[in-house]
């Protein structure tokens, strides 16, 4: 069953075309990876799908409803949840409270809201940071917190924006494993990633964006073989060829450190 359906999505910023006529579907329980060179429009796409920015044209349908006009907080409540690359923790609050805020949004009762955060923290491996202020967490743990908050909302579909950015290779494996277990639970994942190995390992399908348009879609193997994709990444072949999946820390072949990108949804990618 199609959970997410995007048709003809377009968005321009001050005359610059960030997205043009993007269309794709995501079936329930699948994992979609979105790749593309810098400035391809990946973050803008996320923003338009999650509701952070309003698209100029096109539709977004989620779980059978047209959510194109919905504000982002409403989509989040409906189960379409996004994480951010620039983490946005509730700084003054503890890790537990951070997750609790999200939990209570969807909880049916206060009792349920109180129990959920600890469970989620256990899952992402942040249990021992429970009572610390979120501002005191190191970067890798902040990523997990972002994830924990998203999970506390009991999402049906997670939009993960460069969830591996800022992590050293040794840290990536556990996160990827975690994502795998999410899929096992039935959460649909759509993620943007530059670490090509991760994309290949995890995705059922891959979407390739370049200059705001979809230039290729298919299984990981189909996409990497596609000459248009290769051309788009011209000069970035090392990225395509990277076989590092992050399990061992001593492989120096890691030319795909584009995670310094600071993609702000307000400006074109």
């Amino acid at each position: 069953m199609t959970l997410l359906s995007v048709r003809g999505l377009s968005k321009s910023f001050r005359g610059v075309r960030a997205l043009h006529d993007v269309s794709f579907d995501v079936a329930d329980g699948r994992i979609l990876g979105i790749i593309g060179p810098n400035g391809a429009g990946k973050t803008t796409l996320f923003a338009a799908v999650s509701g952070g920015v309003a698209a100029d044209a096109g539709t977004v349908r989620f779980a059978g409803q047209d959510v194109t006009r919905w504000p982002d907080h409403r989509r989040a409540r409906a189960g379409l949840v996004r994480t951010f690359q620039l983490m946005r923790p509730f700084g003054a609050m503890t890790v537990l409270d951070n997750v609790a805020v999200a939990a209570q949004v969807r909880a049916s009762s206060r009792a349920a809201a109180l129990a959920a955060p600890d469970a989620v923290l256990d899952r992402v491996g942040l249990a021992r940071y429970r009572d610390q202020r979120s501002t005191e967490l190191p970067a890798a743990e902040l990523k997990r917190l972002e994830l924990a908050r998203a999970l506390a909302l009991r999402p049906r579909l997670l939009l993960l924006d460069e969830v591996l950015a800022g992590l050293v290779p040794a840290e990536r494996g556990p996160v990827l494993d975690l994502l795998g277990t999410l899929r096992d639970e039935g959460i649909t994942l759509v993620f943007v990633e530059h670490v090509m190995a991760a994309v290949m390992r995890l995705s059922d399908e891959v979407l390739v964006l370049d200059q705001g348009q979809v230039i290729a879609a298919g299984t990981p193997a189909e996409v990497t073989g596609d000459p248009r994709v290769v051309e788009a990444y011209l000069g970035d072949e090392a990225a395509l060829a990277s076989g590092d999946d992050g399990d061992d820390g001593n492989d120096g072949n890691d030319g795909n450190d584009d995670d310094a990108d600071d993609e702000d949804p307000e400006t074109p990618c």
Partner: peptide, 10 residues
């Protein structure tokens, strides 16, 4: 604490 973060969590 963080209006954007709050918006994100619904």
């Amino acid at each position: 604490a963080n209006p954007d973060g709050a918006q994100l969590v619904g």
